[in-house]
């Protein structure tokens, strides 16, 4: 079953006199439970593609349908709510809210969703335990290592029970031990809970785990390969 349907996606940046086509007519679908790596050289358009896919950057033309909803037809306010309820984000620099504890960071998105306190607390505990840092629930991000922060970010991304998780270079700031731990964690989430993951990455270790690798170059899909892993 297709979770995401992308059709003729184009993004043109107008920089002074030059028009740059960052994404040039991408059409692709993602199915539920996929573990996909979007790869390509720097400037190939993969982050722009991911941003449009995640409802963060408006395409010049084309459509992005998530669970049947054309996200770019939503109003700005509804789009924010849509992102909150349907898309989980994991960023390269973790981007946790520094003044909130690990637990509060995870709970925060459920708070935005208006979930009751008891449910929030229960799920926060479960999520942090599932990413292996249940004992750091009261720690602020500054007290956590990079790998631990990224685990909190994964827990936060999962907190809203999204349709899929977009991870933009999630391992770029991690050492090899933290990277393999994080990849193992996300891979387990994918296998156990059928959570859909889409990565933008340069990291070979991520590519080695991915069951689908989409290669983008000059804003176009160069290759779309599937692997049995």
């Amino acid at each position: 079953m297709n979770v995401i349907e992308i059709k003729d996606l184009v993004k043109i940046y107008n920089s002074s006199e030059v028009k740059v086509k960052a994404v040039n007519g991408i059409t692709i679908d993602f199915e539920e439970g996929e573990f996909t790596a979007v790869v390509g050289p720097s400037g190939s358009g993969k982050t722009t593609f991911l941003n449009m896919l995640g409802g963060l950057d408006r395409p010049t033309s084309g459509s992005v349908k998530i669970g049947g909803t054309n996200v770019w037809e939503l109003s700005s306010r509804k789009l924010i709510d849509f992102r909150m309820n349907n898309i989980g984000f994991v960023f390269q620099s973790y981007n946790l809210i520094p003044v909130l504890t690990a637990g509060e960071n995870v709970e925060f998105i459920m708070h935005l969703q208006g979930k009751p306190k008891k449910e929030r607390e229960k799920r926060t505990k479960e999520l942090l335990e599932s990413v292996g840092i249940g004992d750091r629930i009261k720690s602020r991000p500054a007290k956590l290592s990079g790998g631990q922060q990224q685990r909190v970010a994964v827990a936060r991304a999962l907190a809203s029970k999204p349709e899929f998780i977009l991870a933009d270079e999630p391992t770029a700031n991690l050492d090899s031990k933290a990277t393999s731990g994080l990849l193992e964690l996300m891979s387990e989430m994918n296998r156990k809970h059928n959570t859909t993951f889409i990565f933008a990455t340069h990291d070979q270790r991520v590519m080695d785990k991915a069951r689908r690798i989409v290669t983008i170059e000059d804003g176009k899909i160069l290759k779309d390969e599937r692997f049995e892993r």
Partner: peptide
């Protein structure tokens, strides 16, 4: 700025 962007990205309404 980035933190504010993240908050909006993960679902915080701008008015909030």
């Amino acid at each position: 700025r980035r933190e504010l962007g993240v908050m909006i990205a993960i679902g915080m309404q701008r008015n909030r």
